[in-house]
């Protein structure tokens, strides 16, 4: 087993699937010779040639629209949109076609494509380079929306996404790309899309997080344990849609308290859906209102103010303390 970054782990997944299956085609801007601006596709061009690591013209709609046609033909395109901030130029291709070709064609045509794109803040980037808009994609019937939280699950989820018979939006946190290394086994690992994971067990409060927010949530749980004696149970969603609500509803039935953490804006964010599911499925077990620790409903500020926008360990700790202290309504 080698210790690798998330960039290296996703790269490994792509290499392994491309070697195994000649239907897998990587395409996008700068993904070939340059190996991608984050180097996620590094070395693919040398190993698999120009045809399977396609450097495309600078046209996001074109990349996604072509991927749809390739997938209908029976290929397994993995396209890269260089930054998620540029993926709105191809939004209509996903909403109007990728997500509904199976339905429209009565099951004759399917679109087994993966759209990889870096999202999230915290890397001192330019405007349009820091947003978290997973809710857009999670809201679309027919689509799957995946966000890994580290190298090992990113590698496993990427392999599962490529093999998935339906279109998958695969968000990669820029903040996580090189944040830490993890053991990633050379032997193939997959992870079922639509399945969340308990990453820390505890009986006092349920914390639901994903992507780049998992690490500050884990740190917050340590602090709460050390300083307050609070044991948090943490669910890493991994898939945003279709949402696995089994683990977090079971957890909140046990703890009676919950908070959801994401960097996407508060209103209509994934937290709203998660809280609604808890209300529907665990209402009588809830002891306190559920907290949402999220970005604000503003454009994510440029990096001088970004720290105050993004949920961090401190905000999570303070909010969980307040949640647990909130008196019950008379």
């Amino acid at each position: 087993m080698a210790k690798m970054t998330m960039v290296q782990a996703i790269n490994m997944a792509l290499k392994q699937e491309m070697a195994k299956d000649d239907r897998v085609i990587v395409l996008g801007e700068d993904v070939g010779v340059d190996g991608g601006v984050f180097r996620v596709t590094d070395g693919l061009h040398e190993q698999f040639g120009e045809e399977r690591t396609l450097d495309t013209p600078l046209a996001e709609t074109g990349i996604v629209g072509m991927s749809i046609g390739m997938a209908i033909y029976g290929l397994r395109p993995v396209c890269e949109i260089q930054f998620s901030g540029f993926s709105y130029q191809n939004f209509h291709q996903i909403e109007n076609h990728a997500s509904r070709m199976r339905w429209r064609s009565q099951g004759r045509f399917t679109v087994p494509m993966v759209l990889r794109t870096p999202y999230s803040g915290g890397v001192r980037a330019l405007e349009h380079h820091s947003e978290s808009r997973e809710a857009f994609w999670a809201h679309m019937p027919g689509l799957k929306m995946v966000i890994p939280s580290g190298p090992r699950n990113a590698r496993a989820l990427m392999i599962s996404a490529i093999r998935d018979p339906d279109p998958v939006i695969f968000y990669e946190s820029k903040a996580l790309y090189r944040a830490f290394r993890e053991e990633v086994p050379e032997a193939e690992e997959t992870f079922p899309i639509g399945t969340s994971q308990i990453v820390r067990e505890g009986g006092d409060v349920t914390l639901v997080a994903y992507g780049a927010m998992l690490r500050p949530t884990l740190e917050a749980a340590e602090t709460l344990k050390q300083k307050d004696g609070i044991e948090a149970e943490i669910i890493d969603l991994l898939t945003i849609a279709p949402l696995d609500d089994a683990l977090f509803t079971a957890s909140v039935k046990k703890t009676g308290h919950a908070a959801v953490i994401h960097e996407a804006p508060l209103s209509f964010g994934p937290g709203a859906e998660i809280v609604a599911r808890m209300m529907e499925k665990a209402f009588y077990y809830l002891e306190k209102p559920i907290a949402r620790i999220t970005g604000y409903d503003v454009i994510i500020p440029l990096f001088s103010r970004e720290k105050s926008y993004l949920p961090d360990t401190d905000r999570i700790v303070r909010t969980v303390r307040k949640t647990l202290r909130t008196p019950m309504m008379a």
Partner: peptide, 10 residues
Amino acid sequence: ILHAAGLAWA
């Protein structure tokens, strides 16, 4: 139009 381009590429 782009789906035809994707099919043709394939």
